[in-house]
Design a protein around this nucleic acid. Structure first.
Length: 341
DNA sequence: AACAGACACAACCGCGGTATA
DNA sequence: ATATACCGCGGTTGTGTCTGT
């Protein structure tokens, strides 16, 4: 009744990596006899392996028609499309890629392509764009991945040789991180301020508002935890977050209220702004380009090299140097420093 | 130079469907 | 009809290599 026991149950069958000698024996045997019956094959080949192991070795490694080496862009594209269609049906996906094995595709997917898709903000399971609703952490991870994949953190000098657009991405990223750590202290201006638009848009070159409203007063109203200092070199008397001064981030931006009120879109200014918060100073507000905490929108004109307001960049560069000093300062034991590093 | 952690990939394990005695 | 082996597949693990400290 039934079949004889499987070779898998034999005792003393060798496991683990294959030796070149074993590969040779298996190859010779299959070339000579084919592989109709995996169970009896090891005995015929003179191998102390189970048939299952022989099959795996042949199918995934020794088969002569196997293509080895890096996956081409075309192959990657095919895998992504088929995976979206079929899911983890690796053997079916492999059927569309001549010379590639299911195991190889599976490994490649898990080690490379899944990460790649995530970096692109695509859910590797659903193949749909990942939303921001799941967790703000996703936002940051995506931004980090995007920044890294674009080479924006490719050198050790955080803000060296980068364009304003790249700087803005970095600043936004840092700000996002701060929001996660202290969500109450670093609010999303767009959502908290009852009348934020004019204040923000008045300095946003994307805005068509021809008569910007004075911004500072409205900024002060954004949140009791966020206020603007009159003087960059002066500790604000309104600093209700005693004990946080030491954790102040480099004065990315400082502004005089006067300048803040008079700055207009399209004008050149080296004014710097900072916002004192419970967590320290929010970076990312400088020149006449005030960035909303929720997202940075930069028009092509700004990110382009021909934009007349070069002050935006020069001002930013000075600030960014402070960031580098901040990060390089070995004497500082700021919690921000270790976090950012 | 030594070590630790991260990474990549080959190989194994276990399960479900199919074949067969 | 039934029990059991075989085959193929997807998930997981183990090990060698690489990289950073």
């Amino acid at each position: 009744m039934g079949r004889s026991p499987c070779c898998d149950q034999d005792k003393g069958v060798k496991k683990g990596p294959w030796t070149p000698e074993e590969d040779e024996l298996l190859t010779v045997c299959i070339n000579k006899n084919g592989y109709e019956n995996w169970r009896s094959l090891p005995k015929r080949a003179g191998l102390n392996r189970c048939g299952k192991s022989c099959r795996l070795r042949w199918m995934n490694y020794l088969r002569p028609d196997i293509v080895r080496g890096n996956f081409s862009d075309e192959e990657e594209s095919t895998i992504i499309k088929l995976h979206a269609l079929l899911g983890n049906k690796w053997s079916k996906i492999a059927g569309h890629l001549p010379g590639r094995t299911d195991n190889e595709i599976k490994n490649y997917w898990n080690t490379h392509m899944r990460k790649k898709l995530m970096q692109m903000g695509i859910d590797p399971i659903t193949h749909e764009p990942r939303t921001n609703n799941l967790s703000p952490i996703l936002d940051v991870s995506q931004m980090l991945a995007a920044a890294i994949s674009n080479g924006q953190f490719g050198n050790n000098n955080l803000f060296n040789n980068s364009t304003p657009l790249e700087d803005l991405l970095k600043l936004q990223l840092i700000h996002k991180m701060l929001q996660i750590i202290t969500p109450k202290a670093i609010p999303n201006i767009n959502s908290v301020n009852p009348k934020p638009d004019s204040a923000i848009n008045s300095f946003n070159t994307n805005s068509v508002n021809p008569k910007p409203e004075p911004a500072a007063a409205q900024w002060n109203a954004i949140d009791p935890h966020v206020f603007i200092s009159q003087d960059a070199n002066e500790e604000s008397s309104e600093n209700i977050w005693d004990g946080f001064e030491d954790n102040r981030l480099p004065g990315l931006v400082t502004v005089s209220q006067e300048n803040l009120n008079t700055a207009k879109p399209g004008t050149s200014t080296t004014t710097e702004v900072y916002v004192q918060t419970r967590a320290g100073v929010i970076p990312g507000y400088y020149g006449d380009q005030i960035l909303s905490s929720g997202s940075v929108s930069v028009s092509p004109a700004i990110s382009g090299s021909n934009h007349p307001r070069s002050a935006l960049h020069s001002s930013g560069s000075a600030v960014l140097e402070d960031w580098e000093k901040f990060l390089d300062d070995e004497t500082s034991d700021s919690c921000w420093k270790s976090f950012l590093e």
